[in-house]
């Protein structure tokens, strides 16, 4: 699904924020991405959602070397990736409904299909009564749920969430994690950047740990067992 080989990233002429990143994420896997603030989690995410290109190294997404793809093909790849941005990035002039509907509109889906899917998902994230409100009039937690709904509405093959539970209280945070788990069981590959130890421990997925621009993978001791429990 995702393969990074000797990937490095620097902003401008500064030193490398990410250096020699090597990892492979299998289709259907679920990973946490963690590290101190400023370690480069968001930067690594932006490489994965094709928001920028690495300054060196090779990035392979969905089995395709992204350097060899045309602009149009890159856009099509992005449509298969759902992103929850750390700062939400909702369109301020669009209602909650229209923000969530955006990925479907971009795909050119039929309007009645859009109505059904968006309404259903908004109910699910507990915002069914707020679909006509503008983002600015909503709390941080509500905005975050809209951005999560927008990320999953088009059933992406890959879901990248940058600190998606940061603004949510634990109960809603866990509820959303359950949504991610469900999506994962339906085949979506998931990477979640988070600081939240409680959630990482509770859900026990392997962790990608960023430290000084390097990446390590750490699998919890009971990971295999959790995985088996999850499947059965």
């Amino acid at each position: 699904m995702i393969k990074f080989e000797h990937v490095g990233l620097r902003y401008g002429i500064g030193s490398e924020v990410l250096s020699d990143i090597d990892f492979t994420l299998e289709p259907g896997s679920f990973h946490f991405l963690t590290g101190l603030s400023g370690a480069g989690k968001t930067s690594l995410m932006s490489l994965m959602y094709l928001g920028r290109k690495p300054t060196r190294g090779l990035v392979t997404m969905f089995g395709q070397n992204i350097n060899q793809l045309k602009r149009q093909q890159l856009s099509s790849l992005r449509q298969r990736i759902g992103v929850v941005f750390q700062e939400f990035r909702l369109l301020s002039h669009l209602s909650a409904f229209d923000n969530v509907a955006l990925p479907l509109r971009i795909e050119g889906r039929a309007e009645n299909e859009i109505q059904n899917n968006v309404n259903e998902l908004l109910e699910w994230v507990g915002l069914g009564d707020h679909k006509n409100r503008l983002p600015m009039t909503m709390s941080g937690g509500q905005q975050q749920r809209i951005s999560i709904a927008r990320a999953v509405i088009a059933r992406p093959k890959l879901l990248l969430a940058d600190e998606p539970t940061g603004n949510l209280d634990n109960e809603i945070g866990f509820r959303l994690m359950t949504l991610f788990e469900q999506l994962n069981r339906m085949g979506t590959t998931i990477v979640i950047a988070t600081h939240n130890q409680a959630i990482m421990e509770n859900f026990g997925h392997p962790r990608l740990i960023l430290n000084n621009g390097k990446l390590e993978i750490e699998r919890p001791k009971n990971w295999i067992q959790k995985k088996i429990e999850g499947v059965f």
Partner: peptide, 9 residues
């Protein structure tokens, strides 16, 4: 944002 969520040019 439109570009990032996959809108074609």
């Amino acid at each position: 944002l439109l570009h990032l969520i996959g809108a074609h040019d």
